[in-house]
């Protein structure tokens, strides 16, 4: 279980990273924390020609409030965001979800943006981005662009990042006044990939419900109050999902109905 050979690039700034990306395209891979990438490379599921290590780039290490969102640089680790003193009050949902991402040891190396770029549909951070309707900032030599969450993740480990692009930051909107959120995750063991993860954000008018672990990317639905079980059932079915060795598709749908109900009710109760 050893990785195939690769060139290792440790750029001094984002510009240098983008130059390599422009030159090497699909053969290049950004490595921030490498907690998913490294494992897949050891298994030789992925064998990039060049690994671009951005973990040390200071310009990607900031957590900042910008325009109603928490902007998290691409080199910010999950542990660093979790330890950010303003997190719980500006976006409690993230504060609840982050402890579910991997383990203490992997969160100290794994980054927020790396998890988004990896695009595993059972991970918590893509779900958080989707249900909060966040954005991802992409950069290439061609320029920068902002992609909304719903347009960012295209499928199983597939994102809208072009071959010459990299994620430079992610934006998680801060909690609106009067908004309430809730989160539950069902995994086989503590720290495992979710069988089903359900997150919700609601206000007086509606609730936005997101589900990870079922479809190829997080599924999100916006529901007006009151939310009935038929709506949750339709949502559960609409996500598709398949049997795997950990859970049947049917069990996953049942969890979407039941945990979805629990999460929606928690939001409703907190609002009243």
């Amino acid at each position: 279980m050893k990785p195939a050979a690769f060139d290792y690039a440790c750029p001094d700034n984002v510009g240098e990273a983008l130059t390599i990306l422009a030159e090497r395209g699909a053969g290049a891979r950004i490595c921030a924390g490498g907690q998913s990438l490294g494992a897949m490379m050891n298994l030789r599921l992925m064998s990039p020609e060049v690994l671009i290590d951005i973990a040390g780039l200071d310009e990607l290490k900031s957590i900042a409030m910008t325009g109603g969102a928490i902007e998290v640089g691409a080199a910010v680790t999950q542990a660093e965001l979790l330890a950010w003193p303003d997190l719980a009050k500006t976006q409690p949902l993230l504060a609840w979800m982050l402890p579910w991402v991997g383990h203490y040891q992997t969160r100290q190396r794994g980054t927020i943006c790396g998890s988004l770029a990896h695009g595993d549909p059972s991970s918590e951070l893509p779900l958080a981005l989707a249900v909060l309707e966040g954005e991802v900032l992409l950069a290439s030599r061609r320029g920068r662009r902002v992609v909304a969450a719903k347009d960012f993740q295209l499928g199983m480990m597939a994102t809208d990042i072009a071959d010459d692009e990299m994620v430079v930051a992610a934006r998680f909107p801060t909690a609106q006044v009067g908004a309430v959120s809730a989160f539950h995750e069902i995994a086989q063991r503590h720290g495992d990939f979710a069988i089903v993860a359900v997150a919700a954000v609601g206000n007086r008018n509606s609730v936005r419900l997101g589900v990870g672990g079922v479809a190829d990317s997080p599924g999100v639905i916006e529901l007006k109050w009151p939310v009935n079980n038929d709506q949750l059932n339709d949502f559960a079915w609409s996500l598709g999902g398949a049997d795997d060795q950990h859970a049947t598709a049917r069990y996953r749908r049942e969890l979407v109905r039941r945990i979805g109900r629990r999460v929606v009710d928690e939001v409703r109760d907190a609002l009243s």
């Binding site: 290792y8 490294g38 992997t106």
Partner: peptide, 25 residues
């Protein structure tokens, strides 16, 4: 060698991390 078992955990600049998911360089 895929970050799951924790046996190779070491500290880098004080942080406990998996040595199997890091490169020597």
């Amino acid at each position: 060698e895929h970050g799951s078992c924790g046996a190779c955990t070491i500290r880098v600049d004080g942080k406990a991390v998996r040595a199997c998911l890091l490169y020597a360089v």
